[in-house]
């Protein structure tokens, strides 16, 4: 790091106490404006293209692909997640700004799927990141993905999609699990 020190913050993130009068409106707006970071980790990202283009048109739910994690709300773990990718995923997740949600696609993040005995694909995603919605299937069709997003919208709308809060609360436990897999942790402790 050194020179880049000022771009990283090592402190634990403070919890966002949003709410009060606007809480209801905030949740309503958040549910209807989900920006998905355009980042594919596995084979499932091929299903996201028809979901977001003319055939299935996820934009009518107010969703959009954005190119940078800074502006995104949703991180989709699309399919199997290797150790090398996990490192990047953690960084992407921590760079996203606070009300943020994780959607896990396919069987692989749930229990390893067909890569249950792979030396390189992780078996359980929720040890490393808090997951709000699981979508099963290998791979889920775009219809299933849209149904999953509808579910995520319901959760956000009723204020129950609080994975990001859990992540901040249990950061030490998550970090311990992550460091068990990523031996050479060359990152700042928490990168915003």
């Amino acid at each position: 790091m050194g020179k880049d020190k000022k771009y990283f913050l090592d402190e634990k993130p403070e919890k966002l106490t949003y709410g009060g009068v606007f809480r209801r409106i905030n949740d309503w707006a958040r549910a209807r404006s989900l920006w998905v970071v355009a980042y594919g980790t596995g084979c499932g990202s091929i299903e996201l293209r028809p979901t977001f283009t003319s055939r299935f048109d996820a934009e009518r739910l107010g969703m959009r692909m954005v190119a940078t994690p800074r502006q995104a709300d949703v991180l989709i773990i699309s399919g199997y997640l290797t150790v090398k990718t996990l490192k990047r995923v953690i960084r992407v997740y921590e760079q996203m700004q606070s009300p943020k949600y994780v959607v896990a696609l396919g069987a692989c993040p749930i229990n390893g799927g067909m890569y249950y005995d792979s030396y390189n694909a992780i078996n359980r995603l929720d040890l490393y990141l808090p997951v709000d919605v699981w979508i099963t299937g290998c791979m889920p069709r775009p219809e299933a993905i849209l149904a999953g997003f509808k579910r995520l919208q319901e959760l956000i709308d009723s204020g129950r999609a609080d994975g990001w809060k859990k992540y901040i609360d249990n950061l030490d436990r998550y970090r311990e699990n992550q460091k068990k897999i990523i031996k050479n942790w060359k990152m700042p402790n928490y990168n915003w």
């Binding site: 707006a29 958040r30 709300d73 700004q97």
Partner: peptide, 12 residues
């Protein structure tokens, strides 16, 4: 809706 959501997001 996008504007309101962005306005109420956290910045860190």
């Amino acid at each position: 809706i996008d504007l309101w959501k962005l306005f109420r997001k956290k910045t860190a």
